[in-house]
Design a protein around this nucleic acid. Structure first.
Lengths: 330, 330
DNA sequence: TTGTATGCGTTATCAT
DNA sequence: ATGATAACGCATACAA
């Protein structure tokens, strides 16, 4: 059922129908009445494709998720970020379209849809170095916001949204060090930028006191890896009295291992994590951790994209402040 | 950059460009070469709106989420279901578009986009009785699959995908009863259909032995509510030797409360949950629970929608089998 | 093998 | 205040 059908049903022309559709004024009361009745009767709904084609606007923003979906469900921050994105977009009457990339086929298909203009802008989570999606965003200069530093990305027109992991982790360790003298860190061997920055922050906080022996590494961000690393740490340095886990899961694992070895937390050893994920609140004692302003990050990304869509010049980077959540584990 | 631009750049006509674009054959080698070069040079990408308009197909399926996003992130099943949806759609070269409904504005905006034909079909999670989205799906007979029974929905053309909660919970309780004689249930006062069915299954399993005193209710699906309910249960019936939590979080809370009162699990009391969520594996001892075939449910929904899009008659209901996961808590 | 014309359902512009 | 007409970018059928 098209505009023409409505016009026929109302005994007028497409022009008038269009006018009442977008409330343009200049329609006689009786024409409006007839048309509104016809719209109701025919159940007319405007065609998105036709409108998008002529308007060159979709009123939609694509959010591209690359995280394996399972992980995305484990980490509650992502959900909160999406909530922020969605409500900021909604405020501007834009639709959030979530596209998930889970295989290499997905990459090319998503690139096709995004390149084809399925949305007016794009928000990406942790993109890889350079793939078809990034390429199409660059070539067509599609308004984009990206979570992370994007140092390796070559998207000059995009806005990068992130928090200062280095500063936050430094602040956290400094606070932990207030009444501890041998604070260890369980970091990750993975190359993720934020992981490196968290370690850098730890190192900065320790300054002269930095001690290689107090650093352990894990390959994955799991509680069991954290526990294993803590075991090694305890063996090498039984005098350790503080532990900073690169993520909450690691800290939770370490906490368990400490308790299994009879250390009291926080009395004997203080434990802190990062991310304020579900883990943090569930451990016993609950974990002190760093909370990123997830909702605000989502909103910031959305607003950056909306601004770019509106033609305003995009800011290169949006740096948001994290917050230390002090609980009983330290 | 349009087809015309490519044609100009290659010195041919739109027709030929179109032919190489979709590999239609009947193009001279040299023309093809020139056109392919021109495509590369101009960075041509076909316009989705234009193609959708003429093809009357978007090659996309919208997945509509109504869950409050926070919850959606807690329940790991949803992520797995989405994974199943996505890969089934991908196999048919369709794009999954996730739309989140988080406010009443979202409802009308989503209805507008879906009604406008942003996707060829729709998959819905736990829709409410009747809103603009449901209405537009009904009026336009948009191919749809819905999770749940949809008893109150009036969507005659849709396919409903679900598991038999009653049968599964009955099987679970029967198994628990094999060596226990006073099995309680902590159920929910919420009206959700699946919640009712789980209780019905419990009741069926108990038959003659059903005892009102062994039933407790909670208002929310949280561990702390589960713990509180367990306290009440212990007070009223200290002889309880089995507990069935309507969801894992409740069971986990109950387990904690039991241990706090010195009951050994599973020795003194057996505890079982439902959903096989993250909770189940993390408790100590790990929870016996019911696992729904999440991935398969997603795939089934996707395939139902794809079939409907292809014009095949839709089946009314797809009933999948759940599975009991027996761990150490009972 | 290639080029051209027509239509998809809108919106926007221009006469009337 | 209203009706007709021209894009938007593509696919399809048809003419050359």
């Amino acid at each position: 059922v098209t505009v023409q059908d409505v016009a026929d049903a109302a005994g007028t022309s497409r022009g008038s129908v269009g006018r009442v559709l977008r409330g343009d004024g200049y329609v006689s009361a009786q024409a409006r009445e007839a048309i509104e009745a016809a719209i109701e009767r025919t159940g007319y709904v405007p065609s998105a494709s036709a409108r998008n084609l002529v308007m060159r606007r979709t009123q939609a923003v694509a959010v591209i998720l690359r995280e394996p979906l399972a992980l995305f469900v484990e980490d509650s921050n992502l959900g909160t970020v999406l909530l922020g994105v969605n409500s900021a977009l909604a405020a501007a009457d834009h639709q959030m379209l979530l596209l998930v990339i889970d295989s290499s086929d997905d990459v090319t298909r998503v690139a096709r849809h995004v390149g084809g203009g399925i949305a007016d802008g794009v928000i990406m989570f942790s993109p890889e170095a350079d793939d078809e999606v990034t390429r199409v965003i660059r070539r067509q200069r599609i308004p984009a916001a990206i979570f992370g530093t994007g140092r390796e990305l070559d998207l000059p027109h995009a806005t990068f949204v992130r928090t200062d992991n280095r500063a936050a982790s430094r602040a956290m360790v400094e606070r932990l060090r207030a009444n501890r003298s041998r604070v260890a860190m369980i970091r990750s061997t993975l190359g993720d930028e934020w992981a490196q920055e968290r370690f850098a922050g730890y190192r900065e906080a320790l300054g002269e006191d930095f001690d290689d022996e107090l650093v352990e590494s894990v390959g994955f961000f799991t509680a069991s890896e954290g526990a294993a690393a803590m075991e090694r740490l305890l063996q090498r340095r039984p005098d350790v009295d503080g532990v900073f886990g690169a993520v909450d899961a690691i800290a939770a694992g370490a906490l368990g291992a400490l308790q299994a070895h009879g250390r009291r937390v926080p009395h004997d050893v203080g434990v802190v994590g990062f991310d304020d994920s579900v883990w943090a609140a569930r451990t016993d004692p609950p974990l002190s951790t760093v909370r990123q302003p997830a909702r605000e990050m989502g909103a910031a990304a959305a607003e950056a994209v909306l601004a770019a869509i509106a033609g305003e010049p995009a800011s290169r980077e949006l740096l948001l402040e994290s917050m230390i959540v002090w609980r009983e584990s330290a």
